[in-house]
């Protein structure tokens, strides 16, 4: 479980998170939605302390991790996977070496690393690409590699920052399906940042809408979509043309 208690974050004089409270339960696929600049990335980056909150507490499984340093912080991060909008694969490493990276960092023996990489690549359907380099892969394939890499340490939590924003619709669907599978089959808790309601609707069981550094609405996805309360949510719904283009029928099919 991830708990955020009154998280504030300032960059210099400018406060970008104004007291965020959130609880993300084990097994959730939790969506964080908002427009550009709302503070979504900053918020998830507080969860693995890539960003230190200026005040407030971060609790993971009940343990206060806000002030962790050195080896303990490294240990925490090793068990929180993360994927990124632009995949962030190491260009000079092969696909298998990318997947092995988190294990290498932890000092896992080479045979064990390669064994794990083989398993993970099978899972993301890229077994034939172990020796390829990122430059040879399509965006969707690169994100699959990134997902395999994020799973290498068997994390309990996975943070996804705009994981599908650089991908076309069809590829987005296949990546979302894969993330859904990771959640169901491995029981990994997912935090999914997106500005796309279609994405949130497709895989999140709960969502929080963030506007200018504040959570303005939170609840079960279905509920929020059916009865939006905050103006921001209504605006997002109104302007999200993808959603409007979805017929009710297609939406049913879209649910994984």
């Amino acid at each position: 479980m991830i708990e955020l208690r009154d998280i504030r974050k300032s960059f210099g004089e400018k406060e970008v998170l104004h007291g965020i409270n959130l609880e993300i339960a084990d097994g959730d696929v939790f969506g964080i939605i908002g427009v550009s600049g709302a503070g979504k990335s900053t918020l998830v980056r507080c969860m693995n302390l890539l960003e230190r909150p200026t005040s407030g507490r971060v609790l993971i499984d009940g343990r206060d991790v806000t002030d962790l340093k050195g080896a303990q912080l490294i240990q925490l991060r090793q068990f929180i996977g993360m994927i990124f909008q632009n995949f962030s694969l190491f260009q000079q490493r092969s696909v298998a070496e990318n997947v092995c990276f988190p294990l290498e960092i932890r000092g896992v023996a080479k045979e064990e690393r390669l064994e794990r990489a083989t398993d993970l690549l099978k899972m993301v359907d890229l077994s034939d690409f172990a020796d390829a380099y990122p430059v040879q892969l399509s965006g969707g394939q690169q994100q699959r590699v990134a997902i395999a890499r994020a799973l290498a340490n068997r994390p309990r939590i996975m943070l996804c920052d705009e994981a599908t924003s650089a991908l076309d619709t069809r590829t987005t669907m296949s990546i979302l399906e894969l993330l859904g599978r990771v959640n169901r089959e491995l029981g990994v808790t997912m935090v999914v940042i997106t500005h796309s309601l279609a994405v949130a609707q497709r895989i999140c069981n709960r969502i929080a809408v963030i506007d200018d550094g504040r959570i303005v609405e939170e609840g079960a996805t279905r509920e929020v979509f059916a009865h939006p309360q905050a103006q921001m949510t209504k605006d997002l719904l109104l302007f999200d043309t993808v959603i409007q283009d979805f017929s009710e029928d297609e939406r049913e099919k879209a649910v994984i």
Binding site: Q78, F90, Q92, R93
Partner: peptide, 29 residues
């Protein structure tokens, strides 16, 4: 690319590991 350093950090790499497993390796050419 700074995002690669950040990715390394997110996976728990120490500063030393970031230097030789990310910075030096990625800039070899």
């Amino acid at each position: 690319d700074a995002s690669l350093i950040e990715a390394g950090e997110a996976f728990g790499a120490s500063a030393w590991q970031l230097v030789y497993k990310v910075y030096l390796k990625e800039s070899l050419p």
